[in-house]
Amino acid sequence: MTIAGYRIPPMFSLIFWAIVWEIVGRLGLVFLFPPLSHVVMELGQVLGSGQFLGAALLTLKCFFIGIGIAIAVGVPLGYLMGRSDTADKLLGIWVNLFVSAPLSALVPVIMILFGMGEATIIVTVVLFAVWIIALDTRAGVRDVSPSLLAMAQSFGATRWQTTTKIIFFAALPEILAGIRLGVIRGVKGVVIGQLLVSILGLGELFELYSRNFLMEEFWALTLIVFGFALGAAELIAILERKIDFYAGVRHG
């Protein structure tokens, strides 16, 4: 948007909403929203507390292990579905089902099978992230230009060479897009998993704050979690833009 000839970047509107929040909070209109400034001041308090530190470490650990497993499983799975029609037909409906199904309903099962601990949260992250990574990888592998494959074949490339030197790089933009979406879903998974287990990590903190109506602490924690989610997604997006260079060459 431009005001008086100056372009105001879109993200500035978040500042605008922050001010609205502050005003609403000061007026005390909605119990739900304490003034943003109080929340921000509480931020330091929350960040410094040992309880938060433990929860953050647990969250990060579960998240990265989960995403790692999701990538390690999802990319080969997507590759298999992209290259083999049989695999695609057998696995396709399940992957498509799980990518849009309300997987939160499965968390109670995971809790029974894996216990009320870290393992459950890791499995939740994997379950949330793996399907979209597989689907995007499959799309990328299917999309590899046939003339590139024919080229590799005509120069006598082995199957392994074709996979590692052609298909992987040609599909990389889609794989990364899938991983970015997987990361976003994984963050939701790590939060939902902890909320449902509710006796450890962030879930315990959220439970504690909302049960005791500590709104400022609650929002401070929420802001931290949102910030982490956006930061993680943005990090992958930057990586993606670098890879877009290849994509531009490929589609150009």
Binding site: V187, V190, I192, L195, T222, V225
Partner: peptide, 9 residues
């Protein structure tokens, strides 16, 4: 992008 589910409780 954010885990809005955190707000449900």
């Amino acid at each position: 992008a954010a885990p809005m589910a955190a707000l449900i409780p």
